[in-house]
Every structure is written in structure tokens, then in C-alpha cells.
Design a protein around this nucleic acid. Structure first.
Length: 829
RNA sequence: GCCGGGGUGGCGAAAUUGGCAGACGCAUGGGACUUAAAAUCCCAAGGAGAGAAAUCUCCAUGCCGGUUCGAGUCCGGCCCUCGGCACCA
């Protein structure tokens, strides 16, 4: 790139800062939320304050800004807020490494990012800025916690967390990639810790059900949430233990295979194991096995390559369908946290059970037969998992297995040995973090009263600033004397605070309400205002948040709905997830060294060019490869438009760098027609699913056409003026500085963003004469130009007279002639 | 394994939802302007073949088949690729 040699296409360096300043001064994006007339809430996912933004981040804000400006021009009162998801581990790690307080570096980063956003020309109501790490925000994050606590939706239990042995800290699920720590790549371990959870599982059914209300969401995201919630229908079946009569309860989705259940398998953590094996011969070997399995940890156990191993307990239970005694085993492949931790094993119709049974020589029985070739036990190499007819299943023999499934459950249910149940894959949300840089959990631990919530009037629980950073494995707050001890809110006795902080996903699960009431000091938000302005009309962000953030926010919304703080069931009416920007085949990241910095690009081409290219690069929902050379193409186009516009504004007197076409290859009628077509196309593209790329392409076409037009009369000049003026409006959401500059150069006084959106006239889009493609046997052989209103029969006659058609006909009569009005004629021979 | 995207020129991509495949842009080639270059403006361009030429013919949207006058688009069966979930009972 020879940027230094490049001639400046137009004076963007002077224009852009000037308009950025003017828009600030005029408070173009300031909104009063007491008034919700023609409201439009456009929300871009608030960023984590990293050191510098690259063009990949930029796509998010540029798309958002284009939507905001377009809707403004459509006459909406658009709320466009911005804030920062400012708590979190990276800042804390940087603090440890560089010996700088995370608040200092975070606030510095925020200042930098605001400068960058401003330079991009992205417009926000900065009076509504939200910064998650400041007490006036996290006070209310703590309030959210208390609301959940109050209704039994926040609880404490001992649980295994992801633990990175080299960073000596716990990690969030999302920071564990393929069982390894995202930063240092060491294998993640498990550690048992007393933790706070939010009971999101109570809402599993509604979170799943209400996905139906989200027609404005990409199907992909809805499906991902559906998978994550993972609902499965099945039944719990009771297996009495031989002799004792105690019940082992197991969950199955395949009750049709019950007659083939030839053994029972328990998870090593199953609570009944101890009493089962007590006094048995196998007691010692069982205990050893359980101990090893637990030591191995769940994470390793579920790895695909981990061998399935197990041990016999020496005890039996009764298959409730056959009354047969079947052995009870313990095996590493059964998980305690799905279903009941007990699995009825059907080796003939489940692949894992099949492998396990082969290995330990356990009995097998076929209960569903293959419709094609009957199964034979001796010949089976794998489990038969397809459908078929029931066999070896008493009164159910001969039934299709899917039908038998229901009947077997009914039959056992009538004997009170089974009941229909539903299981979810979704787990409760673990929100405790043993880290410093987060909102303290507003709980006090008192020896007398137990866990006691801090009262709302005592919020915020301030995060102390003078702490020592070293990776010890416990929160630095543990060592902080002032923070540590406090009075119990209940008995006023000596007590200690909870040392943990909240997952940053709690911070981000409610920020979109706070934007409505940023200045509110007495409450998290004003319900009346929030109910007027939400749901968010358009949410825009990366697909990487498809599950966590979007699911948590939906959950919190439902909790607030139940407690009557909000009156809507879902917080985000429409969701748009933009694709990533790729460079050299990989996602842009500092560590990969493939980031494209916007600063240099803006210096060389201006932010309007960067914006235009970002929108033109491809369909916004798809990933796209960044191409520096293609940026220049957009820069050239803006220059081309600038030259045309300045030439037209002065009626050919000023800009000597523009030369009109020597002979007009386009007439005024065509040009006007295309102007109206373009207005329609751009409007449709923006109203639809953000087809910025094709909208830009059609504007380019229009300008290319205008270059072919030679103005000869005052009417021609007026047409050209109308054209460039409308094009400014069409371009304004994409290239706001250039559009505003030219707009005012045309003598307009009001901001272009307060000047409405152009309309088109369908009558002016019509052609007098149209060209029709003529096919012979489905292949295009000729074209005819006809009056637009020519009737079908007349068209047929005209086509059959065509010399090329005659040649193909070779004097014969056509079998059939198909006419597609205004498009083509197909002559079948 | 299950679920969901995708597969179109040298490249990013379009295609009015079944109607002229490749708009627009990048890269490329040529021309104009210029002492020259840059910039700008104009023109060409999917591949193969025929022709002096205008033109013409054939082949082309991952592969195979089907429906249809007509398929990038619809149906059936494969292949590849990206993403999500997964010893889930």
C-alpha cells in the first residue's frame, strides 16, 4: 500500500472531527426516556474494556450506528446507549503482572475506547454511560443478587469448579476450552468449593418455551439455547433391591427396552453405594474403585478416550418388568449429575452398555428386532439402536417399539413403579468467583445466624481498593482486615463478609435496564420507564454470547417479571448477531498478531471509508476476511461521489477534477428511474435483515450511472441535484460525516439525521420499453424489446417473428410457448 | 452421534425467492490524459472452442439422481466444511 503517495480523494481529515464535535454539541443522540413516543431502543452489546479496539470489534458498533442513524432518519426517537462491562479476570491478571490497579487500567482503557468509538463516528447518549465496576452500578448488581436470594433463587452449596493449577485461580466455564485454560493451556482440574448458585433450572421450562416468542432472533441462536437447556422426556423407573426392598430409581428415555435391562449401573458418587456394599465380599474392591474414579475427576472421566471400567457390587436388584434378578455394578461412565445417577443397562440396544457388557461378560437380551434381517445375539457387533418390533417382552411383543414405550410406562405407572419425568441438561448458574475484580457478594456469614443477606439500605458492599495482588488461590479480599469483618445484619454480633465476587455475567445480565435510569439513585431502574422503553427493539452483538449472556439475561428478566419489576417476558425483541472479521484465515487477536488497527486506516482514508468497507465487506451475519486493498475501493467510491456532488452543487463551476461524460450514454429518464429504484432497494435492504452490502452496491451503481450522464439543460441539473441529494440521504447511515458535510454544503441547515428518509415513486420506476429474454427449449437464444404494456398474444407473435427464433425453429411449429410476464418467453420445439 | 449454518469466477460476493448465473467491489489487462509516473476517466473480462470481425456454439453454482417448458434456488441420496451440544442413559 502506497498510502503516502496517494492523492487525497476528499478532505476527510478536516470534515470528520468537525462533525463529531458538532454532533456532540448539538446532543444529536440525547434522549429523554420519560417520553416513549416513537421510541426505538437499539442496543449494542457493551464491550469489555480492552486496551485497543480493532476493526473486528468495529463491525459491531458500525452496524449498530448505521441502524441508529437510519431509524433516526425514519423519524424514530432512538435510544443508543453505551457502557462498559468493566469487571473481570483479564484486568486482574494485568494488575498482577504490571503492578497497576485494575481500576486504573480499566478506566484508562475505557477512555481510550471512547476516543476510538468517537473517531468511528458512532453516536451514543453518553449521559447514560454505564460502567459496571463503579459502585453506583454494582450497588444494583448486588441488589439483583438480593432479589434472587429473597425468593430462594440464590443458594449456596459445595461444588467442583474448574481450577487452573498454573494461574492458581478458578476459571469460568467459558474460560475453559477443550479442558484447558484459555490463557496458559494447562489442563484444568477440579476443586471442591462452597459456592453460590442461581437457580436457573427453575426457569428451564419457561426459558425453553418462550424461545417461541423470539421470532426476531436468528434460528441458530434459538437452537443453541434449546440444545443448552437440553430437555429430554423420559420416565423414572423403580428397581427394588433384592432382599432389602429399597428402591434404586433410574431415569430412561427408552422404557421400550426395559425387558432387556440385564444389569444396573450406578455412578461412583451414588449415595446408596456405601450401604449396598457394606459387609459384601466386594466391599474393599468397590471402595477402591469409587475412590479412584473420584480421584480421576469427572472431567477426565467424560473424555471420549477414557476407558469404560466398572466393578460388581455383589448385590442384585429386580427388573420390574421381568422380575429377574439383575446385578448392580458401579462404573465410571455414569454421571451423578444427569438423571438420577443410576442407569438401567440394555446392552443390546445401547452402544455404551454393549461395550461394557462385552468387556465384563454380562448377560444380553434382544427386545427390539430389526425389520429387515432378524437380530441374533451371537452375531451382534454393536448395539441395535434403530426402531423395530418388540420381542421377548411378554404382552408387548409385536408392537412397534415407540408405541410400546408409552404402554410400558403406563403399565408400570399403574403399579406405582414408574412415572413420566423430564430432565434438563441445564445446570444451575455458578456465580461465585474467588477473584478480586468483581462485585462483592452481599452476604455476611455469622456464627450464630448463618448466612445473612446485607440489607438493601446498606448497599453497596464496597470493593476495597487497597488490596495486595498475588495469585494465592483465594480472593485477595480474604486478607483484607477492614473488608473481612463486619457486624451481622441480624444479631449485630461479630461476623465475616463473603469473600467471593460475582461472575461478570451477573453484571451484564441487567445493564440494559440501567441505561433507562442511569441517574436514578434510589433504585436500580424506574419500572414505568423501563416498561415503556423495553423490550429492546434491536439487540446487536457477537454470536459468542448466544448462550451464556443471552440466556442469563433472559433468566434475570423472568425473575424480575415474576417480582413485577418489569411487565415483559423477554428483554430483547430482535437480535442480530454479526459475523467475525477474519484476517489471514483466523479471528483477529493480539496474540495471533493479525489485528488490523483502525487508527492507521482512519488516518489514511478516514472513518467513513472504514465504515463503508465494514458494511460492504459481505453479509453482516457472516464471517468475512478483511482485505486492505478492498478498503481502497471504498475510499475511491467516496471520492467519486464527492467529486460528483461538489460538481453538481456548483452546477459545474467549481471542482475541475470532475469531467462530465463527453456524450450522455444515459438519458434523464433512465437516470431518474434508477434513482427511484435505488431508493427502494436501499430502503428494502435496511428494513430487511440489514443487507448493507447490497444497499451499498446499489448506490455505487447509481453513481456509476450518473457518471454516464451529461447535463445539457437546467432540468438536467435539477435532476442531478435531486440525485446527489437523495444519495446523501441514502449514504448518511453508512458515511455520516461525508453525508452531513455535503448536505449542508447544499444549503441545508438542519442535520441530515433530522431530515427524514427519501421516498420513491413507483410510477417513476416504470419503463416504457422492456427487454424480454427469448428462450428456445430453455436456453436463451435472443432478446426482443417490446412496449411494457404489450399483451401476451402480441408478444408471442413478436417472438415467433424473431429471426433467431426462426432459425432454431427451422420452419417447424413450436409445441408450446410459455410467457413469463415482463421477463421471458420460452419457445418449446 | 445429534442439532444448525455454508459450499457460486483469481478473490469478497450478487441473483427480485423457480425465470437471462456472476450485479457491486478487489485484483488483472487495455485505452485516454500526462514529458513520465501517480491520481482520474473510459473499456474488457467465468472456462473452452469456432470466426477477419460483429458474433456464434458448447461447458459451468460441491457430487449423483429426480420434479419442471425452465433449477444456484424445490425434492431424494451422498461428499466436504464451519459452529453448537455430547459416555445425557
Amino acid at each position: 500500500m502506497q498510502k503516502s503517495k496517494m492523492v487525497e480523494q476528499y478532505p476527510f481529515r478536516e470534515i470528520e472531527p468537525r462533525w463529531q464535535k458538532r454532533w456532540d454539541e448539538e446532543e444529536l443522540f440525547k434522549i429523554d426516556t420519560k417520553n416513549a413516543d416513537r421510541k426505538y431502543y437499539c442496543l449494542v452489546m457493551f464491550p469489555y474494556p480492552s486496551a485497543a479496539l480493532h476493526v473486528g470489534h468495529g463491525r459491531n458498533y458500525i452496524i449498530g450506528d448505521a441502524v441508529v442513524r437510519y431509524k433516526m432518519m425514519r423519524g424514530y426517537r432512538v435510544l443508543s446507549p453505551m457502557g462498559f462491562d468493566a469487571f473481570g479476570l483479564p484486568a486482574e491478571n494485568a494488575a498482577i503482572k504490571n503492578n497497576i490497579h485494575p481500576e486504573t487500567s480499566t478506566l484508562q482503557n475505557i477512555a481510550n475506547m471512547k476516543t476510538q468509538l468517537r473517531r468511528w463516528g458512532c453516536g451514543y447518549d453518553w449521559l447514560r454511560e454505564v460502567i459496571a465496576c463503579l459502585p453506583d452500578y454494582y450497588k444494583w448488581t448486588q441488589w439483583i443478587f438480593l432479589q434472587l436470594y429473597k425468593h430462594g433463587l440464590a443458594y449456596r452449596k459445595k461444588a467442583a469448579v474448574n481450577w487452573c493449577p498454573s494461574c492458581r485461580t478458578s476459571l469460568a466455564n467459558e474460560q475453559v476450552v477443550n479442558d484447558r485454560c484459555e490463557r496458559c493451556e494447562s489442563l484444568v482440574e477440579e476443586r471442591e468449593l462452597e459456592q453460590w448458585f442461581f437457580k436457573i433450572t427453575d426457569y428451564a421450562e419457561r426459558l425453553l418455551d418462550d424461545l417461541k416468542l423470539l421470532g426476531g432472533w436468528p434460528e441458530r441462536v434459538r437452537t443453541m439455547q434449546e440444545n443448552w437447556i437440553g430437555k429430554s422426556y423420559g420416565a423414572e423407573i423403580d428397581f427394588p433391591i433384592a432382599v432389602s426392598g429399597e428402591i434404586i430409581r433410574c431415569f430412561t428415555t427408552r422404557a421400550d427396552t426395559l425387558f432387556g435391562a440385564t444389569y444396573m449401573v450406578l455412578a461412583p458418587e451414588h449415595p446408596m453405594i456405601a450401604s449396598l456394599i457394606k459387609g459384601q465380599k466386594a466391599e474393599r474392591s468397590c471402595l477402591r474403585f469409587v475412590g479412584e474414579a473420584k480421584k480421576q475427576g469427572k472431567r477426565v472421566r467424560v473424555l471420549e478416550q477414557t476407558e469404560k471400567v466398572g466393578v460388581f457390587t455383589g448385590r442384585y436388584c429386580i427388573n420390574p418388568t421381568t422380575q429377574e434378578k439383575i446385578p448392580i455394578w458401579v462404573a465410571n461412565y455414569v454421571l451423578m449429575d444427569y438423571g438420577t445417577g443410576a442407569v438401567m443397562a440394555v446392552p443390546t440396544h445401547d452402544q455404551r452398555d454393549f461395550e461394557f457388557a462385552k468387556k465384563y461378560n454380562l448377560p444380553m437380551k434382544i427386545v427390539i428386532d430389526r425389520p429387515t434381517k432378524p437380530l441374533a445375539l451371537g452375531e451382534m457387533r454393536e448395539a441395535y439402536v434403530e426402531d423395530g418390533a418388540m420381542v421377548n417382552s411378554a404382552q408387548f411383543n409385536g408392537l412397534p417399539n415407540r408405541e410400546a414405550l408409552e404402554k410400558i410406562v403406563d403399565w408400570l405407572a399403574s403399579k406405582k413403579m414408574a412415572r413420566r419425568t423430564v430432565h434438563y441438561r441445564l445446570k444451575d448458574w455458578l456465580i461465585s468467583r474467588q477473584r478480586y475484580w468483581g462485585a462483592p457478594i452481599p452476604i455476611v456469614h455469622c456464627a450464630k445466624c448463618g448466612t445473612v443477606p446485607v440489607s438493601e439500605s446498606d448497599l453497596p458492599v464496597l470493593l476495597p481498593k487497597n488490596v495486595r495482588f498475588k495469585p494465592t488461590g483465594v480472593s485477595p479480599l480474604t486478607e483484607h482486615p477492614d473488608f473481612k469483618s463486619t457486624a451481622c445484619p441480624q444479631c449485630k454480633g461479630q461476623a465475616r463478609r463473603d469473600f467471593d465476587t460475582m461472575d461478570t455475567f451477573v453484571d451484564s445480565s441487567w445493564y440494559f435496564y440501567r441505561y433507562i435510569s442511569t441517574r436514578e439513585e434510589a433504585k436500580a431502574f424506574d419500572s414505568n420507564d423501563v416498561n415503556r422503553w423495553l423490550p429492546v427493539d434491536q439487540y446487536i452483538g457477537g454470536v459468542e454470547h448466544a448462550i451464556l449472556h443471552l440466556l442469563y439475561s433472559r433468566f434475570v428478566n423472568k425473575v424480575l417479571y415474576d417480582q413485577k419489576f418489569v411487565s415483559f417476558k423477554e428483554p430483547f425483541a430482535k437480535l442480530f448477531t454479526q459475523g467475525m472479521i477474519i484476517k489471514d484465515g483466523a479471528k483477529m487477536s493480539k496474540s495471533k498478531g493479525n489485528v488490523v488497527s483502525p487508527d492507521e486506516l482512519i488516518q489514511n482514508y478516514g472513518s467513513d471509508t472504514v465504515r463503508l468497507y465494514t458494511l460492504f465487506i459481505g453479509p453482516p451475519e457472516k464471517d468475512a476476511e478483511w482485505n486492505d486493498q478492498a478498503v481502497e475501493g471504498c475510499y475511491r467510491f467516496l471520492g467519486r461521489f464527492w467529486r460528483l456532488a461538489t460538481f453538481v452543487i456548483s452546477e459545474g463551476k467549481s471542482d475541475s477534477r470532475f469531467k462530465p461524460a463527453e456524450e450522455g450514454q444515459v438519458n434523464a429518464g433512465d437516470l431518474e428511474r434508477h434513482l427511484h429504484l435505488t431508493i427502494k432497494k436501499v430502503s428494502d435492504d435496511l428494513e430487511g435483515d440489514f443487507h448493507f452490502n447490497t444497499a451499498v452496491a446499489s448506490i455505487m451503481e447509481l453513481i456509476n450511472l450518473a457518471y454516464q450522464f451529461r447535463p445539457e439543460s437546467q432540468a438536467d441539473w435539477n435532476l442531478l441535484k435531486q440525485l446527489v441529494k437523495n444519495t446523501m440521504l441514502l449514504l448518511a447511515p453508512f458515511v455520516p460525516h461525508l453525508a452531513e458535510e455535503l448536505w449542508q454544503a447544499m444549503g441545508e441547515k438542519k442535520s441530515i439525521f433530522r431530515s427524514g428518509w427519501p421516498s420513491f415513486d413507483s410510477d417513476r420506476m416504470k419503463l416504457q420499453k422492456i427487454e424480454i429474454a427469448v428462450q428456445v427449449n430453455g436456453r436463451v437464444r435472443s432478446h426482443v424489446t417490446i412496449p411494457a404494456d404489450l399483451g401476451e398474444e402480441a408478444l408471442k407473435v413478436r417472438v415467433l417473428e424473431d429471426s433467431k427464433v426462426k432459425t432454431w425453429l427451422e420452419g417447424k411449429n413450436p409445441k408450446k410457448v410459455i410467457v413469463v410476464p415482463k421477463r421471458l418467453v420460452n419457445v418449446i420445439i
